[in-house]
Design a protein around this nucleic acid. Structure first.
Lengths: 234, 234
DNA sequence: TATTTAAAAGTGGTTAACCAAATATAGTTA
DNA sequence: TAACTATATTTGGTTAACCACTTTTAAATA
């Protein structure tokens, strides 16, 4: 009997409001550059409190959809209406992203980061990467999970690439990776020794500034993760 | 005389609060899994209103640093303390990213997106890409700027790649690209004909499902942009 | 009529009080 | 003593009033 009950979609007030405002924009009732209705009017029309409208607009500003000007108004930014069609929902939906895409994209970013790191790393970078690696190994030796320490090792490499955007994007997808790893219990204890060896090889190649080999080592390291993820596709 | 005046760093209250909370976490006064002090106590200690603390925590939740539980408390998420060291500031600083990194990373993402699009595109995808291209051309013919339409063309390709993360990341960096393009007045009218031709080649290769040639065509298309950006490095 | 000026209406920003749910505490009972 | 219960406290969520600044409006002035 219970299987006939459908899961209730809890949709927070602010998400509802965001949807409404998006409609306002995509139906061209508000053009880019135009002012959004004031927070008070929005609140009254939507039948919610101004605080909720405020929170929704705050999110919208995060996504770069609108720009609030103190005491003056909130304007829709120039990024054209057409692009907005699916934009907001897509970014919001990133939370429920499929693991395969996540791993593929991670590999793409990390390969490039490793290549660049081999070329542009400073001695200080190398030192920090090694420290991160040791932190990972130590935690592993104590028999604890070390997903976060592992990720930090990779982020340090991205840092050494001197490409700030590359690093930022890695930071953005990192929480999702951590979440999925823990959910799926990816951490295979038997692979620890192999992982440690692969890390050391990557560092060696970065250390000797061999970009091609560094990228190759990282690719090898990540392909195992990808193979694993494919076994868990729903 | 005026040159002796230093620009005043306007730092909004919430950014200050975020910094304080970050310190609280990175100095291990609050461990992952621990509850953050209540909003009221934070507000009192920091000498600000609870609303500001609320806004700061909201941002922190966006970044995945904390998770708020209604009527119970706000907890620091598992993503380890070490990674937090520079995380928040880095993401916040992404607004002032250097154009070179931005273009490099865009090329990286787009090459992969184009490759995948050639393989995985549906007929519907192809149709939408062509529509986006025509929108771009039409606006160009009217002598208007068409940065946004250009970007939308590229986003449609990312959509066809069927890799949601890839698309999301492109959406994230798109506003920055638009901003910089407009600031630098990159749109070179003399290149219009060349750009249109390159777009058509990319579509042809995606249409015939030739992944290698599609990626190559996209690379050619973007290299011009990269060359331009290097002439404008500060 | 064109320009200036002053008042009023509107804006986002901020604050303090109140709400219901979750939690901790003390009291009661077996 | 242990388990349960009722109460008090603490929590994030919500609301409405107030603030300072901006924009609009309309009146006064040249």
């Amino acid at each position: 009997m219970l299987e006939n009950l459908h899961k209730i979609e809890v949709q927070s007030p602010v998400d509802l409001i965001i949807t409404q405002i998006r409609n306002l924009i995509s139906t061209k009732q508000v053009l880019p550059g135009d002012k959004l209705p004031s927070e008070r009017k929005l609140a009254e029309h939507l039948g919610v409190s101004r605080g909720n409208v405020r929170a929704a607009i705050s999110k919208l500003e995060f996504y770069g959809i609108v720009k609030v000007h103190a005491n003056s108004g909130t304007r829709v930014t120039g990024l054209g209406i057409p692009a907005l069609e699916g934009l907001i929902t897509d970014i919001l939906a990133m939370e429920n992203v499929d693991f395969g895409s996540l791993v593929d994209t991670r590999i793409l970013l990390e390969k490039e980061a490793t290549r660049l790191a081999a070329i542009k790393r400073t001695d200080q970078d190398l030192k920090e990467i090694k420290t991160a690696m040791l932190n990972y190994e130590n935690k592993l030796m104590k028999g604890e999970q070390a997903v976060e320490e592992d990720l930090l090792f990779h982020i340090k490499i991205a840092e050494a690439s001197k490409n700030s955007v590359l690093k930022s994007l890695m930071l953005i997808i990192t929480p999702d990776i951590v979440k999925n790893f823990i959910n799926l219990k990816v951490c295979d204890e038997s692979n620890n020794r192999k992982t440690i060896e692969e890390h050391r090889q990557i560092i060696d190649m970065i250390s000797t500034r061999d970009a091609d080999q560094a990228e190759k080592a990282m690719t090898t390291h990540l392909e195992a993760v990808k193979a694993f993820s494919q076994n868990f596709k729903p």
